[in-house]
Amino acid sequence: MNFLTDVLYSLYEYITGGTLWISIGKTLVRIATIIILALVFKHLGNKVIDTIFKDKKKTRIKLTTNRREQTLKSLSKNILSYLIMFIATMMVLDTFNVPIKTMLAGAGVAGLAIGFGAQSLVKDIIAGFFIIFEDQFSVGDYIETSGIEGDVEMIGLRSTKLRSFYGQNYVIPNGQIDIVTNYSASNGFAMVEVNVPYETDILNIEKIVSNILTTLPKKYDMFIGEPEINGLQALELSNYVLRIRAETFPVMQWAGARAIRKEVKEHLFEQGIDIPSPRMVVYSHNDREVSN
């Protein structure tokens, strides 16, 4: 009983004594200092990265296109965050007298064991490096991959973030990005098919449409040169199909197609030419008996 009383009394003195709380206070101050310094270095690093990529004329570093600059800036900030986080974590562990050198020495063996369980993570990181190195797409591009379309908002070491036309945010692991359609890498082509009734003269229709197309580059700034008629595309049951093709700036082909449809419809309507619509003929049972 006396032994238990002595233990409790010693524990009470240790808890209420100044040595314990001074030690805890020093540890907390050191951890807080490490966190604050990490945040400061991260902020300063981001400022430096923004300055480097802000004005190409004020730096000796030869950069590429704006698209690639945004990608490299985002990646640089990503790497900086990981590096500062790793260093800060090591310093915090050292505060608790964790043997850092021993941990790093055993990291090779542990890394081999972890590697078998983190193959997808390694695959994502390697794929991310190849995406950036080969310039498959950059921040700000409009792409389609894995059945998803959207603007590239961020390219990281592990994943890529897309924002769709309807506002959804998608995070795609880099290792799952296989086939990419990059609509921003080159000019697009607006393809429009116009249904025209057989009752109209095809030569007259082509003349009217050609006159319309010559005015479009002056009215809309998305076109590169004048749109052209590709000719008769198909012969349907009640109409023939005229195809129009126009070169546009990147990611503007859909807006260009809408503009062509609008202008062609309005001008054909002014000329008294209606766009054919599906027709349905209904025969009643009584009509069949009378005809017999």
Rank of each mutant, 00 (worst) to 15 (best):
K56M: 08
L75S: 03
L104M: 15
G256I: 02
N46E: 13
I79T: 09
V139H: 01
I244C: 01
F86C: 11
M280H: 12
I125M: 05
L11F: 11
R30Q: 10
M252A: 12
Y183E: 02
R67F: 08
Q136N: 08
G140D: 05
I125A: 04
S23G: 07
M90T: 10
I131C: 04
S76M: 08
V281A: 12
L8D: 06
V194Q: 04
T16S: 04
K47H: 09
V48L: 15
M85P: 04
L72E: 10
Y220M: 06
L104P: 06
G117P: 05
S284M: 11
I24H: 06
G115Q: 10
V122A: 13
A259F: 08
T33F: 12
Q70I: 05
T65E: 14
H43G: 09
K101V: 11
L237A: 14
Y240D: 04
V40I: 15
H43L: 14
E134A: 10
V48F: 13
E193Y: 05
F3W: 10
W21V: 07
E228D: 12
I229L: 15
T16H: 04
N66V: 03
N204I: 12
E270W: 04
V122Q: 08
I34H: 01
I273M: 01
N187D: 14
S81V: 09
P227R: 00
V40A: 14
D6L: 10
K47T: 08
F269V: 11
H267D: 11
G108P: 07
Y198A: 07
V264E: 02
P227C: 02
P173I: 01
S81Y: 13
